[in-house]
Amino acid sequence: MIEVTIDGKKIEVEKGTTALEAAEALGIEIPTLCYHPGLPADGNCRLCQVEVIDRGRKSLAISCMYPIRGPVEIFTDTEDVRRARKFVIQLLIARSPQSPVLQKLAEEYGVDVPDERFVQKGEVDLCIRCGRCVRACAELGNECIDFVSRGWEKEVNTPFNEPSKTCIGCGSCAEVCPTGAIVVTEKDGTRTIWDRTFRLVACDACGTPFATEEQLEAAKPEFEQTDTRVLCPRCRKIAEARTIVLLDGAQGGHV
């Protein structure tokens, strides 16, 4: 165990704990966009910067990627830290001025509306290239999306910008997106995401479309069909409850 000091508070952590995790354990809030506790850290958004004093040397570090290896002192809200975060927000909001998440951060850190010469024109682009979606998809073993191109052209997309063959339409990428840049639409028993339209499987009992075929396939072997019918969660519950009633020989017989 290593004792570290964060904003004057002391905490003992395991070697390798990140500065962000240690701060969270102390209840100290550090703003993040690309960090997700369920995914490997990637240090893309640069918002979680903190000041680390290690053996007398001061430096800025990306807290989600900074493993604590010695008794360091960490400051999460110094002038240097705020200036660094402010700069990050300035760059992000120049690309996505319409993003409510970024607008809120800009207000909090006193970032002015960027000069319109530096603001991206054309289509609204809410993506901040943080890669949460990419990591979520990889974590699920599907790996349908990744960063493509470099520099200003860099974006998240499917291979060759075509509908992905390996996508299961689960929508995790959209769920983890911090800015709501990924859109999933459901209409008339279909779900569309990343330009691919999936037909939703209808529940054999109630007829409600509830999941894509690929999702049910991916959930095997955990997913079991109830007496060879494909049931939605609600109807699975009803089927089970009905069994109990039947086995109890409840009043009235068949239900």
Binding site: H36, P37, G38, L39, A136, E139, L140, C170, G171, S172, A174, E175, V176, A211, Q215, L216, A218, A219, E222, F223, E224, T226, L231, C232, P233, R234, C235, R236, K237, I238, E240
Partner: peptide, 27 residues
């Protein structure tokens, strides 16, 4: 551990009893 959930809903697909659900609004 709600913070670790990425919203893939595999658990909802997997539960044979339909006893786990996903709140899309609250993620």
């Amino acid at each position: 551990d709600g913070a670790r959930c990425i919203g893939c809903r595999m658990c909802v697909m997997a539960c044979p009893f339909g006893n786990i659900s996903y709140n899309a609004a609250a993620k």
